[in-house]
Simulated assay, not measured.
Amino acid sequence: MSIASTTSPFSLDRSARVYIAGHRGLVGSAIWRRFAEAGFTDLVGATSAEVDLRDRAAVFSFFERTRPDVVIDAAARVGGILANNTYPAEFLSDNLQIQVNVMDAANAVSVDRLLFLGSSCIYPKFAAQPIREDSLLTGPLEPTNDAYAIAKIAGIMQVQASRRQYGRHWISAMPTNLYGPGDNFHPEHSHVLPALMRRLHEAARDGVDEVTIWGSGTPRREFLYVDDLADATLFLLENYDSPDTINVGVGDDVSIRELAETIASAVGFTGALVQDTSKPDGTPRKLLDVSRLSDLGWRARMALPDGIANTYEWYLGHLESLRSK
């Protein structure tokens, strides 16, 4: 089956078989929604119980059976500062295995179009802001998530190596911090935005007078609504073909303190926000330069307050299932 229509080499045929690795996660589920909305009729996914992507033989067997035309690698072991800092060996090993197996299997069945999704943590801790794609490998990484970052850098290299050796039209994209419906709200293993949302919601519910926030509150972060990333994924697959990775973000950032205040307003928490400066801040600032993507014609649409409100609405609708997590 051809992946292309007659309009462009990368205008994807809506009947192409598209495998979305990690289709039940925050990112993968949003990509599935976007592709379904765009009219794709042959979307393929497999849960970790069905295919453990760390199991090389299982992955190769799955690709041989399904033979996808397009692959989107949105599968990863992810977590916040605490999880990354506590389990660096697992974050390195699991993510290396997942992406190596997926890409090797894709090469084995001659998949021509693949998109690998990484993370903005690949860039040096003190990279010039906003962070350009060419700052990769120009300085030391943030030590609290360097293991995860190294795995994602290896993924970029594998995309580039496959292009050189096999002539594949594979690409990689580096999203900024993501959030939205389907996020992980675990009190210890989640990222900063869902972690704050859960804590502030529970504080408002329980009538707590104050909530403590890790660090000084001054580090600045950029937040991209996951459905915007999903839209960018389809856009890139149809409009981008280069060995160079490309940033996906909004081009604007907020301090962690400002983020907490916005979430507090959304969930109705009116108590005090207290900074615990004994806890690590992580990277001082992480804002991506998204000019390359903007020049191609794509920009994020969701404003942060609106995205937080949508995410909180989803959270409230899934409290029962989240209570045990």
Rank of each mutant, 00 (worst) to 15 (best):
10 F>T: 14
160 Q>M: 13
236 L>K: 02
194 P>Q: 12
320 E>C: 10
158 Q>T: 10
206 D>A: 15
137 L>Q: 09
34 R>K: 05
31 I>H: 10
313 E>A: 13
10 F>V: 05
235 F>L: 00
264 A>C: 10
101 N>C: 04
200 L>K: 09
247 N>K: 04
267 V>R: 01
296 L>S: 06
137 L>K: 08
207 G>N: 11
151 A>K: 04
124 P>T: 06
220 R>C: 03
134 D>T: 11
300 A>M: 13
269 F>I: 09
1 M>Q: 13
210 E>K: 14
204 A>R: 07
45 G>D: 08
325 K>P: 01
212 T>N: 06
291 S>C: 01
52 D>H: 13
254 V>D: 12
102 V>F: 06
37 E>W: 11
299 R>M: 08
134 D>S: 12
40 F>H: 14
19 Y>L: 10
238 E>I: 01
205 R>S: 06
184 N>F: 01
61 S>P: 00
150 I>S: 11
67 R>I: 15
195 A>I: 02
73 D>L: 15
227 D>S: 06
194 P>T: 07
84 N>K: 00
78 V>C: 14
225 Y>P: 02
323 R>T: 11
135 S>R: 15
277 T>P: 03
62 F>R: 02
27 V>R: 05
247 N>G: 10
59 V>P: 00
321 S>F: 04
89 A>F: 11
242 S>L: 05
202 E>Y: 02
40 F>N: 11
182 G>L: 02
70 V>C: 12
230 A>H: 00
98 I>M: 03
21 A>Y: 00
74 A>P: 01
137 L>C: 08
297 G>D: 06
258 E>Q: 15
160 Q>T: 11
293 L>P: 00
158 Q>G: 08
184 N>E: 01
207 G>S: 12
265 S>W: 06
100 V>F: 04
85 N>K: 08
114 L>A: 02
288 L>A: 05
55 D>I: 01
15 S>Y: 01
210 E>W: 15
259 L>C: 14
19 Y>V: 03
184 N>G: 03
85 N>H: 10
140 P>D: 07
